[in-house]
């Protein structure tokens, strides 16, 4: 297959020494194997995720994503915009939808952008990385690159919220999307069935402001993975990954549980299955070590 190029919006959490820098490491390795070239949008800014709303009104928040789209149009006009972060993808895609659904809003947004010397048409497709994998490659093609199948590892596919709702991936159901399970299977691992917290919320940004309430949600997400016999959890979202991995000590202390469940990205699994070493797969970024993956990566 010929090289595929995309206009890449990495987002704040994927930067060097940020909370999902390990995600970015594994995405780079995965893309290297699949001959994907990610062209970073020059000088991209934060999308304000879903928590900027107290200080930022509707138009200022839309302007943030519009600025990114304007910069992308200038730098890579013929490429689709691709985001790896759920919130980045959602904010950008929502902005595009709103601007095209309301001429007045498009005009106001452009009035604001003009202050920074920019103009937006918002015509580029806005896609999540997993859409690129499923639609531009497909499971069969993705499977062909596997050199070290993840045999015998049982994995709970935690889809979470924002890569699922409101837009969904590949036309799948919001209540029981299968794409993550199919990716797990394609990499040679065993997806667990009936993972009933698959699309439940981890609290998102409220894990910071409402820690007790959010940790109760996170506890259920992990417990349900154990109930299904999972060895680890896989997710496509940086916030899901952080919340579900990093608070396990707190949850254990509060609920007297003994959770020690690794939480990885789909790109972590793919990098290992594609023969990359532990560092390239971002495994050194695990707070809770994914030992089974380390073993395979070390072979």
């Amino acid at each position: 297959m010929a090289k595929k190029e995309y206009s890449f919006y990495p987002g704040c959490s994927s930067q060097k020494a940020a909370s999902a820098s390990n995600y970015q490491t594994s995405v780079a390795s995965m893309c290297d194997e699949l001959d994907i070239q990610l062209n970073e949008i020059p000088d991209w800014n934060c999308c304000s995720a879903s928590i900027g709303f107290a200080g930022g009104g509707e138009l200022p928040r839309l302007a943030l994503s519009a600025r990114n789209m304007a910069l992308s149009e200038q730098a890579h006009p013929d490429q689709d915009i691709v985001a790896t972060c759920a919130a980045c993808w959602l904010a950008t895609k929502e902005t595009q939808e709103r601007l095209h659904g309301d001429d007045a809003l498009m005009e106001e947004t452009n009035q604001a952008l003009a202050e920074g010397g920019l103009k937006v048409k918002a015509n580029q497709n806005v896609r999540h990385m997993v859409e690129v994998l499923i639609e531009d490659f497909g499971y069969d093609e993705l499977g062909k690159h596997v050199t070290r199948p993840l045999e015998g590892i049982k994995i709970a596919g935690y889809v979470g919220c924002q890569t699922n709702r409101p837009f969904g991936i590949d036309g799948e159901s919001f209540e029981n999307p299968k794409y993550l399970d199919k990716l797990v299977e394609t990499m040679g691992a065993d997806p667990i069935n009936n993972y009933d917290k698959k699309v439940s919320c981890c609290g998102g940004a409220l894990a910071f402001s409402e820690p007790e309430k959010s940790q109760a949600l996170i506890k259920d997400i992990i417990e349900s993975a154990y109930d299904g016999g999972a060895d680890m959890i896989v997710t496509p979202c940086p916030v899901c990954q952080l919340n579900v991995e990093a608070y396990q000590d707190h949850i254990n202390a509060k609920y007297n549980t003994k959770f020690n469940m690794p939480v990885v990205y789909y790109s972590t699994l793919m990098s290992v299955a594609y023969g990359k070493d532990a560092k390239q797969a971002g495994l050194d970024g695990q707070i809770i070590k994914a030992k089974q993956l380390e073993e395979i990566a070390g072979k």
């Binding site: 800014n45 934060c46 107290a54 200080g55 402001s209 409402e210």
Partner: peptide, 22 residues
């Protein structure tokens, strides 16, 4: 309200430099 405080901090943080400083 804790989320009110946090959401305002988040906005101030990101608008200062254009990217979130975690």
């Amino acid at each position: 309200q804790q989320t009110r405080k946090f959401a305002n901090l988040f906005w101030d943080n990101l608008t200062k430099t254009g990217r979130v400083n975690e």
